[in-house]
Design a protein around this nucleic acid. Structure first.
Lengths: 209, 209
DNA sequence: GTCTATATCTCGATAGAC
DNA sequence: GTCTATCGAGATATAGAC
């Protein structure tokens, strides 16, 4: 059922509730009762469509990775300069995770749980020709070759960029009690990061640049 | 008991086991049976020293924050240049979390759970005069004033630096199946980040700088 | 397909012997 | 202070009526 093309209306409600609840609380923190409640069905119905909790979780995680791929990586076009690539990536990551924080939370939850379930689905982001992540890596490598930017490990740069963008969204609940700007207007702070992260990474902090 | 000065040997074993298990699995993922097993006592003994699971978790989290403060922030001295501040911070964060990944995992788990319990303890990192985080912020502000670096929001820079350093350690379990360098020699990749992160943030990517 | 009712299991916490 | 035994809440999952 979960895999077949068309979902019934009930199944769709279950699936969307699962995205919200798993996204918010992760695999362990979520419970089937809450998912059933949000979908306005009973637990028995939930188990009718998805035999085990894990089946529902896997379906949700696979869908989430697809959404991430679609919203973050497809906007990085082959042949973009490093500047365009980084600008686009910062903008998409921060806007997307700002609007859908449960997606990055689901991902981080899965990381903390050892990635046992998610590992099978993350290959969709792969590095092979044409896959989403490969365009980021390729664009950086080309930019180094033609001297737009200094030599840099594109994998390291990927983590630096994604980490800079995603980390404040993940840690907001704790750091907001410490940082006045983040506490008073989280959206403004997070959206201001699009410029900050791009400029810091691309131009650095030294005034000469 | 937990708060008093001297811990008995059994209590110490329990506490250290709690650090490991909570650190690895977070508040919800951890269970008291596993902590008791690792401490080689029964659950009943665990509950003798710590009435509720939450008491043990709070003690562990408070201790963890103290460790983080002690190992990351005390090495940032008042009056350091921005260059020294960032170099020191990258070096300490990556080395420390590389050696003790459960500490950053515990922190992120708490963030994902909404920070309800940890919020009370994170104020120890505060921004007030003399508190650990204030030195980072102050050093950056001074560096801007005297023109060492261009104008930058020190709070934004804090997230950029910490996120760049911590994110790969947190997400290693999932991204290692995607990035060959990270999979084949995680330590080398993570330790190489100390230079990469500092140079990317301080000097940027543009070759002119 | 959806429900009520329930089986089964896991976990935090307690009682009481020693 | 540590143990065995057990309680009771809450979770996943199933049985069977409709």
């Amino acid at each position: 059922m979960a895999k077949k093309g068309q979902k019934t209306e009930t199944e769709l409600r279950l699936f969307e509730a699962a995205l919200r609840v798993f996204g918010d609380k992760g695999h362990y923190g979520a419970n089937t009762q809450e998912i059933a409640d949000q979908a306005q069905v009973t637990k028995a119905s939930l188990h009718y469509y998805y035999r085990h909790k894990d089946d529902l979780y896997e379906a949700a995680f696979e869908y989430a990775i697809g959404k991430v791929s679609e919203n973050l990586y497809t906007h990085i076009q082959e042949g973009m300069s490093a500047e365009e690539t980084l600008r686009t990536f910062c903008d998409r990551v921060i806007r997307f995770y700002h609007d859908h924080p449960w997606l990055i939370k689901m991902f981080i939850h899965e990381c903390l749980n050892g990635g046992k379930i998610g590992r099978a689905y993350i290959v969709e982001l792969g590095l092979e020709e044409g896959k989403p992540l490969s365009r980021f890596i390729e664009n950086i490598n080309r930019a180094v070759e033609r001297g737009e930017i200094r030599p840099v490990d594109p994998y390291q740069l990927f983590f630096t960029t994604l980490g800079s963008c995603a980390f404040p969204i993940v840690t907001q609940s704790l750091f907001s009690s410490l940082f006045p700007e983040l506490r008073e207007d989280p959206s403004a702070f997070l959206l201001a990061r699009r410029e900050h992260v791009f400029e810091t990474i691309y131009f650095g902090l030294t005034p000469s640049s």
